[in-house]
Design a protein around this nucleic acid. Structure first.
Lengths: 155, 155
DNA sequence: CTCCGTGCAAAAGGTTTGCACTGGT
DNA sequence: ACCAGTGCAAACCTTTTGCACGGAG
């Protein structure tokens, strides 16, 4: 969803600050990628961002946009709304259930919790969607990666 | 998550019935793909399913496994747990928010609903995960596709 | 017997990477 | 001036597709 202009300004400044902290140059290309994403109404694919960015910087290369997007995600200024990894995953569990996803290693495990299975469905009159089911994706760090992080902290 | 043997049997019979209804042959390959998925502990990628299937049917081709998985999804016997489409999508909205996803056209729109933003996080002592956030993905049909379906019903 | 599914291999499509040159700091 | 970023193109990886053969109904 498009970010309001007021907030977008702050987001761009935050981006510049984060770059400085890491000693990364704030290039036109990077800034334009961020701006394109802030203005997007939907959840654009990398290619859609590329198209939008090229309206402003015609010569920009695909690789630069991909790299710019990854940087934003790494900095916490954007989210990748797809699943971790490059491949599709399949699941034979077709009942309502939820997922715990590790941000670090991309592991995904099931969560069966009946207390989470009776959320009210968003009203069709408000959303326009006819919704039939839902899944909650919890994000965080899995046990293995927690241990690994802890070890890294010690070393 | 692995499906209990008792339920797996029923799932296989349901698969056979669905094939018959559609006049599709129940081949060894198709059955093995389903079995591999029912036995999987995690959310395997297509390639992981392929590896598992080849333990039992060494000569099976990659394409057959991909086709088998798609058939299962189409029949409602499995879920693709990745996002619609082949590409990653990006989102500049980094606050807690949720998604409405159309099963038909793969459109994804944001849902901001404060009443959905205070779900209890699963307990770390139970899951082992240190969870920091969550997103709810609602699945269904978007307004455009509802209209399209309606028109198809009339014709 | 007829089709459809399979296997093989090639194509497709999205993303990543190596390298020389350019541009920010 | 230095070092990282960019552009270009090739590589990579997952998924899809076309076609001839063989097996299911």
């Amino acid at each position: 969803m498009a970010i309001p202009a007021s907030e977008a300004q702050g987001r761009i400044r935050r981006f510049e600050r984060l770059c400085q902290e890491r000693g990364l140059p704030v290039t036109v290309q990077r800034r334009v990628v961020l701006e394109a994403l802030l203005e997007a109404e939907d959840h654009p694919s990398a290619d859609q961002v590329l198209a939008k960015v090229r309206q402003r910087v015609p010569g920009i290369s695909q690789a630069t946009v991909y790299r710019g997007l990854d940087l934003l995600v790494e900095m916490g200024l954007a989210r990748k709304t797809c699943n971790p990894g490059r491949h599709c995953r399949y699941d034979a569990n077709i009942h309502r259930h939820h997922h715990l996803v590790c941000d670090r290693c991309e592991r995904m495990v099931d969560l069966e919790d009946p207390t989470l299975n009776d959320l009210p469905m968003p009203d069709r009159n408000l959303t326009g969607f006819h919704l039939v089911d839902y899944t909650i994706q919890f994000r965080g760090t899995c046990p293995d990666c927690l241990r690994a992080q802890h070890r890294e902290g010690i070393e």
